[in-house]
Design a protein around this nucleic acid. Structure first.
Length: 557
RNA sequence: GCGCCCGUAGCUCAGAUGGAUAGAGCAAGGGUUUCCUAAACCCUGUGUCGCAGGUUCAAGUCCUGUCGGGCGCACCA
């Protein structure tokens, strides 16, 4: 509703500009664009614009004078705008009527869970691919971060009207797979007492031993006597299946469910990589050199051209990846969003080049880099090393700090910024913990409403008389609630869920302060009724926002 | 060497479209509970926004250069 108000006021301002006779002085008689901002200082009003500065430049007059003239000429809707002031060097500050803010409370109560929802997505299908860890071991801490971010982005997109689809790409083919299968075979043979050294490229983790044992128990040793390609294949598939089941269980315990686990093996089996080659060839983006087949990615801004088929006839990893991304679009997704680890940073340009080469718009594929997580215990870093097999798994992390804390903390930073995750803080049931700070605000809001019901106050409703809401801090709270829908849209467009955690913290802080200073339930029934409506509205927004992050909003703690 | 990202308070980081005095959390110290959950609140400080130029009425934000840190630069995955 504030968006509509801004548009309305912009029209009135432009009319004023015209009436004040500025238009003839403007190039081609065009009117300026009205840009609104929300002043931090309440003394500068509720909405502010700097049009006068822009006009000053073209008209070669002082911005202050221009602002004065516009202010004098503008016809303001009295029911919504209390007054317009010119301040500073030429700001036009609008002070909105209290009634406008009270109307926001009504709107929030009326909308409930729908407050902050939008339909800018028009139902377009968006595929969000995230986590996609190699099926060679359990998920680790950084995967938990990717899972939190990816799921929150999907939720955000759903919140603004896209149809989001969560997908996990399973690298069950290629070298990673071969190395896993190799490790399985070696472990099986070792378990059977054969003297078999562990090759360099095989996976050393202990969990492979467990899987090998299980495999032998089920299938017996004969399975190892099968001829080479089948033997490894069978071992590898067994291991992948087991590992994926474990990853899936970890993700579900974390509250993340994928719509699809996309198999690279299946993709290769269908011949998609070959089709990708044909598609690129048909568009003239391939050439042969020194026995290899190259993709001219430099056409689309990549540093150098890339090999798709090596001179020995083997395909590179890049090719099935192109085929996979192409498949996303042929499946009807309008947009694809990838979350990659920092080690894949260098692939961004070439993948985007490939999609452009296949005729997709430049922004059809968006790739985000999820930076690493440094686990801390207080001020000490928890050392991890893949080589020695010492790493903290996602299960361990979630088991130790809980899923709400983990998810929320992962969402407090932009995803391309490295994150220090302090286990002590994440576990603390105290004021150091940002998660509980916000959740506790929600709990408090619920608690107040419960108490009010006990004291026989009617449940808050949009029809309540909100006149008594007059305090600056009450208006401040309402303003925050009013901004929420715009915030959600901005966060969704920028794919930045961390804006929501920051917002939540701010809203929670305002409420905690209000709660401590003011009595909500009192003997003044009309005041109580109005404040309860505000409380109910705050609860709606905090609940909605937490929901968008995939963090629970407890009624009791 | 080339490309990308980052450099904001003691630490970890926010700062939407350039706008009015740059914000949180943590850490440190002090205070608040006859009353709706103290997992809360209130008070007390710090900043040449890496540096230097430039664009602009206005730059933490945009441009160029520079220094420092991270990452990427395979006919690997």
């Amino acid at each position: 509703m504030i968006t509509r108000l801004k548009a309305e006021l912009a029209d009135l301002l432009l009319a004023a500009v015209r009436r004040a006779g500025f238009q003839p002085g403007l190039a081609s008689g065009s009117l300026p664009e009205i840009v609104w901002e929300y002043p931090v200082d309440p003394g500068f009003g509720d909405l502010s614009t700097t049009v006068a500065f822009g006009l000053a430049k073209v008209l070669r007059r002082k911005p202050r004078e221009i602002a004065d003239q516009i202010a004098a000429a503008v016809e303001i809707p009295r029911d919504v705008v209390d007054r317009v002031e010119v301040a500073g060097a030429g700001y036009l500050n609008f002070i909105l009527a209290k009634g406008f803010w009270r109307g926001v409370v009504r709107q929030v109560l009326r909308a409930g869970p729908a407050w902050g929802r939008a339909d800018i997505g028009n139902g377009l299908k968006v595929l969000v691919e995230f986590v996609s860890a190699n099926p060679t071991g359990p998920l680790v801490v950084v995967n938990a971060r990717a899972a939190a971010v990816g799921d929150a982005i999907a939720r955000l997109l759903e919140g603004v009207g896209y149809s989001a689809y969560r997908e996990y790409y399973v690298n069950d083919a290629g070298n990673q797979f071969r190395n896993l299968a190799l490790a399985m075979e070696v472990r099986c043979r070792q378990l059977l007492g054969e003297d078999y050294p562990m090759p360099e490229e095989a996976y050393p983790g202990d969990y492979v031993i467990d899987m090998a044992r299980e495999y032998l128990e089920r299938n017996g040793r004969e399975a190892l006597d099968a001829p080479e390609p089948e033997r490894r294949d069978q071992l590898g598939r067994f291991a992948v299946e087991r590992i994926l089941a474990g990853q899936q269980a970890a993700l579900e315990a974390y509250g993340v469910t994928f719509d699809n686990w996309f198999s690279e093996r299946a993709l290769r089996g269908r011949g998609d990589p070959e089709q990708a080659i044909e598609a690129l060839r048909a568009r003239g983006h391939l050439y042969e050199r020194e026995g290899a087949l190259w993709f001219r990615s430099t056409t689309f801004g990549d540093d150098k051209d890339r090999v798709l088929v090596k001179s020995d006839g083997e395909i590179t990893y890049f090719l099935p990846d192109i085929a996979y991304h192409q498949d996303k679009f042929t499946r009807g997704f309008a947009h694809a969003i990838d979350l990659w680890g920092p080690d894949h940073h260098g692939y961004v340009a070439r993948m985007q080049a490939a999609m452009q080469a296949l005729g997709h718009p430049q922004h059809a594929l968006r790739i985000l880099i999820v930076q690493l997580v440094r686990l801390m215990r207080g001020s000490e870093q928890v050392r991890m090393s893949k080589r020695t097999g010492q790493f903290v798994t996602m299960d361990e992390l979630v088991g130790e700090v809980g899923r709400d804390a983990a998810r929320f903390i992962f969402l407090t930073r932009r995803c391309d910024s490295p994150l220090d995750f302090d286990l002590e803080m994440a576990k603390a049931a105290s004021d150091e913990n940002p998660v509980y700070y916000v959740q506790y605000a929600h709990t408090r809001l619920c608690s107040v409403l419960r108490e009010a019901a006990k004291a026989d106050f009617a449940a808050p409703s949009p029809e309540d008389d909100l006149g008594p809401l007059d305090l600056p801090e009450e208006v401040g709270l309402i303003k925050q609630l009013a901004l929420y829908p715009e915030l959600v849209i901005g966060a969704a467009q920028a794919l930045e869920p961390h804006r929501l955690t920051a917002y939540l913290h701010d809203l929670a802080a305002r409420f905690h302060g209000y709660y401590n200073r003011r009595r909500i339930i009192s003997t003044d029934t009309s005041l109580t009724g109005a404040r309860l409506a505000l409380v109910a509205a705050c609860r709606v927004v905090i609940g909605n926002a937490l929901n968008l992050l995939g963090v629970s909003a407890p009624e009791r703690m």
